[in-house]
Amino acid sequence: MIAFEGVSKRFPDGSLAVDDFTLTIPSRSTTVLVGSSGSGKTTLLRMINRMVDPTGGRITIDGDDVAKLDPVKLRRRIGYVMQNSGLLPHRTVIDNVANVPILDGVKKSEAHAHALELLDTVGLDRSLAKRYPAQLSGGQQQRVGVARGLAVDPNILLMDEPFGAVDPLVRDELQQELLRIQRELSKTIVFVTHDIDEAFLLGDQVVILRTGGIVAQAGTPAEILANPADEFVASFVGAERGRRALHIDAEHGDRVLVDGTGRVAGVLTDGPGGMAGTAAGSAPE
């Protein structure tokens, strides 16, 4: 469990990125921090592994104040995945994945064997192991980034807009892969995005932030959609514009769903195993 207790961050230039933020992130589930730029979501994420130190309040992991932990040791037991992969361009895929375990003293052969298994886990062909990051597509690089994040078998995985820079089709694929990986591994995932649909798809808990790291609403996607806390949330999730209110449109037959703006949103199916609907807000499980 990760707990933020009255956390603030004022940057040296005087700007207040986060003000008195309190939140509990339960273990073995996915919490998504979602907000526009300036909402402090990335700052909050980076406070968990001490890439940013708060100027007020404290953050605990299973009761331990992170401020009292050595930053390098802390970071080595937390997976970190970022936009544009952040892979080392002069290292091969397998060296990138095995990097931290080797720095931690794991034997190279062992670390490499484990790295190959991780490539399987993230759905990459083992033949890519000897390639350099520049020889991979953006989506493949992100998969390597996820494999690297998992390399030390961390309990916590921090993901900072990991799918923000790949095209929509690849993003869908990566999101589904992440859901699959999470079903298999049950990590404590903290995921940052500005995409509300991505948040609703991946999050067990979704935290909508407004400027300055203020929690506008926190809850399951269903709770937020059913009862938006205020106009800001309603507008952010699109409920205000009617995008979340779906009705069956008789003109197109009795199965076509249309939202409040008149956009055709999807097709009503008999169950979750049917055609993948574009209807946003459908529960992942």
């Binding site: 890439m51 390098v72 970071r75 080595r76 970022m82 080392l88 361009p89 931290v100 720095l103 690297r148």
Partner: peptide, 15 residues
């Protein structure tokens, strides 16, 4: 060297 690469190296726990 790209700042993002260095930031990533630090974030994964390199000294």
């Amino acid at each position: 060297v790209d700042r993002a690469t260095i930031d990533a190296a630090r974030a994964i726990g390199m000294t």
